[in-house]
Amino acid sequence: MRHLIFSIVTICVGFAAQAFEIEGEYRFGSDDARQEIRIISTADVEILIPLMRLFLDANPKVAIEYTSVSSGDLMTAIVDEGAQFDLALSSAMDLQIKLANDGFSAEHSSDATKLVPDWGNWRNHVFAFSQEEASIVVSPEAFEGLDIPRDRQALINVLRSHPERFEGRVATYDLALSGTGYLFATQDARTTETYWRLMEVMGSLDARLFGSSNAMIEAVSRGEMAVAYNVLGSYARARKDLDGMIEVIDPADVTSMMLRTAILLKGAEETELAQGFIDHLLLSAWGAEDVPEYPFYKWHLDTSEAAAATKPIRLGPGLLVFLDAQKRKRFLREWSAAIRQE
């Protein structure tokens, strides 16, 4: 035990200077609300506003304080700085699992949690409330005269055969910066051998690395980039303003599905309200009733062939493996060697 305290203290001392970086702080609900749910989240606030409004309409005396952070900062805030929040919403499944595994989460079980499929619920601590596809976003303009690739092998072929057209115009996540990118990359590496070949091809074309999906989507829409690999399809499809400027492709071989998850944090002050909010999220995601405010595509209701290729990343301790410092170091080294071609 003393050991544990000691390590926490050293960590706190080590990180005390660099507080976690807040991207935005918002407050919803009436000013004289008696209760407040404090949410720390990696999701862009706009995407969740309708769902939060719906919840506040049903609970008029409640306010939501929404803190938007990156997935790494979410971890820092809770583990290293002990920041007080009731709920953590994150797209970084592995980090959410780590939070729960390391004892920062509380159990919650209700009728709503029973709606969640097995692979989307880890020990009633981590609950998936969205499935979001890892897509390829292309600029139709850049592919003029070429077949738009539908899977990884086709992408490799087209990139290889037209290096002059794609040189410096291929984009993907910078794994060192983005948790989502790292998650997609590690799952790709687990699932398909073509991933490494693709990285090598992209590396040979002097790939550009981005920190977020939105940046890639915009770069492609401007024609700056011809193709972006492993972009959150949900974000790209939500950009109705970019219609015609981008095309979103879900790889026909395997499409990894990231699960956005919610956890109830241990030491939450408004436990019951926070549980209510989780139930609200889960009901809109998995309930039979259609909730127009729910911003994500309900893949589990889709019976098309494209949906059959989707593969939700399973919540579980396996996700901890790539968080291992040694493993991460090794993976990033291999990835860098492939993508940087130095």
Binding site: W122, R314, G316, P317, G318, V321, F322, Q326, K327, R330
Partner: peptide, 14 residues
Amino acid sequence: VVDIPYGALSMLGN
């Protein structure tokens, strides 16, 4: 160096 196989931990989750 140690390269933890994915299955090492995911099998526990199964």
